[in-house]
C-alpha cells in the first residue's frame, strides 16, 4: 500500500466520522478491501519492520502500572537508606559495622549511597523485579490469551521470544539505573560530595568516582542476565503468569539460601548469584577483575543454557491457552 493510499484510508475514516456509522461499510471498502493483490505480489516488507514489535513491547512494558510500581519500590530503597543513615549519624556517633557494603562511608560522600543502594537491592529487590517481568513475559501472554493472537499475527515464536528477552534485559538496565539515579540524587541532597577513597585506600576524583558508579550500575544490570534467562525459561513452561513469577522468585530465594550453606561450596560457584557482590571490586585501585569476569561469564552461561532451553520449549510448544 502506497503512501497515497494510506492517506486515502485516513481521509476515508475521517469522512465516516463526520457522516456517521451508516457509511462505515462503504468507506472501508476503499481502505481495507482494495489492496489484496498488491499485498501478495508487489510488496517487499522491510526487514526493519520486524523491530516494530520490540518497540511496542518496550513501550507497553514501561507503561504498565505494575512496571511503574516495581520501579517506584526500587527508587524508594535509596531514599530509605539515605534517611536512615542521616538519622543514625546525626547525633555524631559513627555507625558501627554491619549493614550493606560502603554504608559507613556515606556520611563522608553522598556518592557512596549509590554503591550502598546497589549492594542493598542486588540480593533481592532487583532480581525480584526482574523475576516478575521475565516470569510474566510468555506466561502472562498465555494467561491473557493474547499469546495466540500475537503468534497468529504472526509474531513468530523465535522473534517473540527474542523480543521478550531483549525487553527484560532493557528492564534490567532501567531498573538498575533507577536505583543508581535515585541514590545519586538522595546522596547529593543529604550528604556532601567530593573526592572519594577507594577500598584500596587511594583517592580518586569525584568525576572518576561518578564514572565508576556508572560502570558498577552496568555490571549490576549485567548480573541480572542470568535470572532474566531463567525467568524466561520458567515462563515458557506454564500458562499462568503468577505461577511463573512465583517460581522465579522462589528459585531466587532458594539459591540465595543455598549460597549461604558452607557444605555446598563445591557447587556454589555455579549459582547465578554467587559473584553478584563482586561489583565492589570496581572500587579497588587497581580494579580486581577476576571475580567480575567470573560473574559475567556465569551470567553468559545462564543466558546460553536457559535461553536455549526456553527457545527449544517455546518453539515446539502447543499453544492451547
Amino acid at each position: 500500500m502506497s503512501r497515497a493510499e494510506a492517506s486515502e484510508v485516513s481521509e476515508a475514516s475521517e469522512g465516516s466520522r463526520a457522516s456517521g456509522i451508516s457509511e462505515v461499510s462503504e468507506v472501508t471498502d476503499v481502505g481495507v478491501g482494495s489492496g489484496t493483490a498488491e499485498v501478495v505480489g508487489l510488496w517487499k516488507p522491510s526487514p526493519l519492520w520486524a523491530l516494530g514489535l520490540l518497540r511496542n513491547e518496550l513501550v507497553t512494558t514501561l507503561r504498565r502500572w505494575r512496571t511503574l510500581a516495581l520501579l517506584g519500590v526500587l527508587a524508594a530503597v535509596p531514599v530509605l537508606v539515605g534517611i536512615a543513615v542521616k538519622i543514625e549519624t546525626s547525633d555524631g556517633a559513627s555507625g558501627g559495622g554491619g549493614g550493606p557494603a560502603f554504608v559507613t562511608q556515606i556520611t563522608n560522600n553522598g556518592l557512596f549511597l549509590v554503591f550502598t543502594a546497589l549492594a542493598a537491592t542486588l540480593p533481592f529487590f532487583l532480581p525480584m523485579a526482574i523475576g516478575v517481568i521475565a516470569g510474566d513475559a510468555i506466561a502472562g501472554e498465555a494467561n491473557a490469551g493474547t499469546l495466540r493472537y500475537l503468534l497468529v499475527a504472526p509474531a513468530g515464536r523465535t522473534r517473540l521470544l527474542l523480543t521478550k528477552y531483549a525487553t527484560t534485559l532493557a528492564f534490567c538496565v532501567v531498573a538498575t539505573l533507577v536505583v543508581a539515579l535515585s541514590a545519586l540524587i538522595v546522596g547529593s541532597l543529604l550528604f556532601p560530595l567530593g573526592e572519594l577513597t577507594t577500598i584500596s585506600g587511594t583517592r580518586i576524583s569525584f568525576g572518576e568516582g561518578l564514572g565508576r558508579a556508572f560502570l558498577i550500575a552496568l555490571i549490576v544490570a549485567a548480573s541480572l542476565i542470568g535470572i532474566a534467562a531463567l525467568g524466561l525459561f520458567v515462563s515458557t513452561l506454564t500458562s499462568s503468569g503468577i505461577a511463573a513469577m512465583a517460581t522465579t522468585v522462589g528459585l531466587l530465594i532458594t539459591i540465595q539460601i543455598l549460597d549461604q550453606i558452607p557444605q555446598l561450596h563445591a557447587i556454589q560457584p555455579y549459582f547465578f548469584s554467587h559473584y553478584w557482590l563482586s561489583f565492589a571490586d570496581l572500587m579497588r585501585d587497581p580494579v580486581y577483575w577476576d571475580d567480575l569476569f567470573r560473574n559475567l561469564g556465569l551470567q553468559g552461561l545462564y543466558a546460553a543454557v536457559f535461553g536455549t532451553a526456553a527457545w527449544a520449549r517455546f518453539t515446539t510448544k502447543d499453544i492451547t491457552a
Binding site: A12, R17, P45
Partner: peptide, 29 residues
C-alpha cells in the same frame, strides 16, 4: 497497534491509518 506491530509484514507507516479503518469498520471508533 500492538497486534499490528507483531506482524513483520505490516507497514508501520500506514499502521495508524489501518488501525483507524479497522476500528471504523466494526463501529468502535
Amino acid at each position: 497497534l500492538r497486534y499490528d506491530s507483531a506482524d513483520p509484514t505490516a507497514d508501520p507507516r500506514t499502521r495508524r491509518a489501518r488501525v483507524a479503518a479497522a476500528l471504523d469498520r466494526v463501529g468502535l471508533t
